[in-house]
Design a protein around this nucleic acid. Structure first.
Length: 587
RNA sequence: GCACUUGUAGCUCAAUUGGAUAGAGCAUCUGACUACGGAUCAGAAGGUUAGGGGUUCGACUCCCUUCAAGUGCACCA
């Protein structure tokens, strides 16, 4: 709609002798209680016109109507100039832009972006919090692709450290050599079981020590089992063969389990990083920082950066014993990623509990003069909470990802058996559909919320399939496909008809798809897409009820409405794909 | 204590980034299937946008302040 903005700039120049920038013209969709499709807010122009808002709007409206042939009419309410565009404009746009198959497919923008997401610990199965992370990361990657970026999806697996040793140790002590094969249990769940077991034993020992008069703090340090775990970590770092063998074996179990969950979630990765391979990175950066005078060394040999001038604290980057900390490792990994891919932007999908960490990380890299530091972005999302509070793996108060997926499939199955139209589906086809609809509901539920907001999930209330939900959009798609099939639709030629208001609304909705992708990419927010596609489906459903398609008044209307339906189905499908949600032909 | 984030209908979320009478869904109530798919549609009811102050033509949005919730403030990751 740039032509309207340009014309408005010209109008203000001609009428009031004032030069405006395109950005000064506020164009927005007209509210549905008023006539028109787009609205210019004319309040800001009154200071140039020195006339009332109504008069200013009317003058600009007259000018535009005479100047721009696509503008069929206008009305002014207070400082709002509502513009009606001619049907010809909408039909041209529909046939030239929206209906063709390449609608909203943008050309490569020449930029490369890395999206790091998932990044699980290999000591326990994935829970709902991880699910949010995975869906967000995957969707943001898809959105950026649609916007023209070349995308690298990365997964930095946290496969080492004390928490991994805890599972390993507990398995060694209490596991009786059981394996996923021997128990039939999914590998990540089996390992997670021992992580919980470790914690139980650890707590028991703490209580015991406390009963002998130790303070809580001392007991936590002195419990034999935690000391053993720390020893094991040292042995791991020293390359102890037996420990390494155990570590590799149990990690393989976990990867096998994660692989299944990832597949069910429909997410994937182009590049895996493993902390066991990256945890020593960053030492050279510490040296570099010392040389550049960005870091400084204290008497005890520890190395720090002083960020107090930036309103932050002093931050340790190397211990006095010369070993790395989390920050060091992340500095090194960031460098490594850039070395591998030379991307223009790099997005970290990580929970908001690490806001401070990333603020510091990016600031340090900028201070070190890394040219690529400005392309770093922390996509910070809110925690998923239960009504009972925070999820805690060790205490078993988590919503397990695999369980949840299975439940969603069950919910979808029940609904489909009740209302679905799936005569002739084979068992495999049915199972696939239950999965598609169940995951549609789950994914939409998690993605429709602004990422940065925390999410409340009540496991006792199943996720809706009606209303503002994934299945609503999926249903809309299936229904359109059904109509098109019945009509034996093939793209026919251009027709000229008078548009009904609801048809104009639907066209407007469709036309907004490209800028919706742009906005979602800019904000790194799948929620923008989710809300858009719901709005689109809603407009279609309204149209569907108001207008007959197969029994339309005349052949031209029928042809047009079929085309409109087809275009809507295509956009729904594409938009849902950006959320990682499939849409069925029937359901 | 300090820092960051959040607070919108009973519940779950929107609000085109400072624009019109703050919009949807769920739940509640009323209506529409001898229909192209009723997982739908039309309507009713529901609000001091946590409270207070300020900035201006205009504030859910920006500033100040109070309150509430969450997170972070390790030579852990």
């Amino acid at each position: 709609m740039d032509f309207i903005i340009e014309a408005a700039v010209k109008a203000v120049k001609t009428l009031y002798q004032t030069e405006l920038n395109a950005a000064d013209v506020n164009l927005q969709p007209t509210r549905k209680e008023f006539e028109g499709q787009v609205t210019i807010v004319t309040f800001p122009f009154t200071k140039f016109s020195r006339k009332s808002p109504e008069q200013t709007g009317t003058e600009i409206g007259e000018f535009l109507k005479n100047e721009v042939k696509e503008i069929a009419g206008f009305n002014v309410i207070k400082g709002f100039l509502n513009i009606s565009l001619a049907d010809g404009y909408w039909l041209d746009k529909f046939y030239n832009e929206i209906l063709p198959d390449d609608f909203a497919t943008s050309k490569p923008n020449g930029k490369k972006v890395m999206v790091e997401y998932s990044s699980p610990n290999t000591n326990k199965p994935l829970h709902l919090g991880h699910v949010r992370n995975n869906l967000l990361g995957y969707s943001v990657a898809e959105i950026l692709k649609a916007e023209g970026y070349e995308v690298v999806k990365a997964n930095l697996v946290n496969d080492r450290g004390i928490h991994i040793c805890k599972s390993m140790l507990a398995w060694q002590k209490f596991g009786n050599s059981e394996t996923p094969e021997s128990t039939g249990e999914k590998g990540d769940h089996l390992v997670g079981k021992y992580y919980v077991l470790f914690d139980k034993e650890y707590k028991k020992q703490i209580d015991e020590l406390k009963s002998f008069g130790q303070t809580e703090e001392d007991a936590k340090k002195n419990a034999p089992i935690i000391k053993e775990a720390q020893e094991m970590l040292q042995q791991w770092e020293a390359g102890n063969e037996e420990v390494i063998r155990l570590w590799k074996m149990m990690n393989l179990w976990v990867y096998d389990g994660f692989g299944k969950t990832y597949e069910a979630l429909g997410v994937n990765f182009d590049k895996f990083y493993y902390e066991s391979e990256t945890y020593l990175l960053g030492k050279d950066i510490v040296e570099e920082g010392l040389e550049k005078g960005v870091f400084f060394e204290k008497e005890d040999g520890s190395v720090w950066i002083d960020l107090t001038a930036d309103g932050l604290d002093q931050k340790l980057v190397r211990r006095s014993d010369g070993t790395s900390v989390y920050m060091t490792q992340d500095l090194g990994t960031a460098q490594e990623k850039y070395k591998n891919f030379h991307m223009d932007e790099s997005i970290y999908v990580v929970g908001n509990e690490q806001d401070y960490h990333f603020k510091v990380l990016f600031l340090i890299l900028a201070k070190l003069g890394k040219s690529w530091a400005k392309g770093l972005y922390h996509l910070s999302y809110g925690m998923v909470d239960l009504p009972s509070g925070k999820m805690k793996s060790r205490e078993g108060t988590v919503v397990d990802a695999d369980d949840l997926i299975a439940e969603m499939e069950q919910t979808a199955k029940a609904e489909i058996e009740k209302n679905g139209k799936i005569d002739g589906f084979g068992e495999l086809e049915k199972a696939e559909l239950y999965h598609t609809v169940g995951m549609g509901a789950l994914k939409y539920f998690l993605l429709k919320v602004d990422p940065k907001k925390r999410l409340l999930f009540d496991p006792n209330e199943s996720i809706d399939l009606q209303g503002h939900t994934g299945p609503y959009v999926q249903y809309s798609h299936a229904r359109i496909r059904s109509v098109l099939k019945k009509a034996d639709y093939r793209q026919s030629e251009t027709v000229k008809i008078d548009l009904a208001p609801i048809e104009r609304d639907l066209l407007f909705s469709l036309a907004q798809y490209p800028e919706t992708i742009t906005q979602a990419a800019k904000e790194h927010s799948p929620a923008v897409i989710a809300n858009y596609v719901y709005e689109l489906a809603k407009n279609y459903n309204k149209f569907y009820h108001e207008k007959k398609i197969l029994q339309a008044e005349d052949e031209s209307s029928k042809a047009f409405r079929l085309q409109l339906s087809s275009a809507t189905a295509k956009v729904i499908k594409k938009a849902m794909k950006l959320l990682g949600i499939e849409v069925p032909e029937r359901m």
